[in-house]
Design a protein around this nucleic acid. Sequence first.
DNA 1: CTGCATCCCATTCGATACTG
DNA 2: CAGTATCGAATGGGATGCAG
Lengths: 125, 125
Amino acid sequence: MPEGCKVETALEILVGKWKPVILFHLFSNGTMRFSELQKAMPDITKKMLTAQLRDLEYNDIVHREIYLQIPPKVEYSITEYGKRMTHLLQAMNDWGMAHVEHLNELYGKDRSVESLEVIDDLVGK
Amino acid sequence: MPEGCKVETALEILVGKWKPVILFHLFSNGTMRFSELQKAMPDITKKMLTAQLRDLEYNDIVHREIYLQIPPKVEYSITEYGKRMTHLLQAMNDWGMAHVEHLNELYGKDRSVESLEVIDDLVGK
DNA sequence: CTGCATCCCATTCGATACTG
DNA sequence: CAGTATCGAATGGGATGCAG
């Protein structure tokens, strides 16, 4: 472990019940409208979706493009800066997968999978 | 971004208000007694410290060595498996530091530093 | 010394309704 | 369509006291 310890800074950006899923969809699909994100994540409320997107926007991870028209249209996408965190997300994802494996070996299968339903739905398994 | 998206798995291990600090101390000092950890983090309550250590223990990141004696003595250390996540922690830390810089450039200094007091105390700045 | 139990508060999050 | 406003429930975390 290094000096400084800004691990929490990284955590704060990614934590928030829905941020990883949102990023996953935006990384996968490129640009999405608010309603498309909602359709992709049926369980998230508008309030939460808005809040998390605003958070990501403040951190320059997500770009919000507003079209002044009726009916309104707003598109979200990953910023260039945001794309640079792909490696970190990849690293976290890889470690996460390996860790699930590790826990399975330690305790046996079918455990510690709670609270990942959303992701599992997403992947469709 | 990959398939699967187990980013949340990684997050769940590190999240918990004190886990990064605990890991930081254990990585730095090797083996520490419960009371030493408390001294190192004056603001954490016993309840929280216990809970987070149990969590890390369950995830095979931290080892708990109990000496059966009076008065009791319990030592905590990073497991071999836990040491293998050094690279991930390093990556998150690096990104976190760079991100603080990035935000400073975007919005100007002296912002977004809230909620890092603990870490800052730790580093003594 | 270590750490569990209890109570309590603050913040988060979901549900619902409403608006430009 | 893309939000905001309001309320209540759930959850996380702090303070304190007791126990092995």
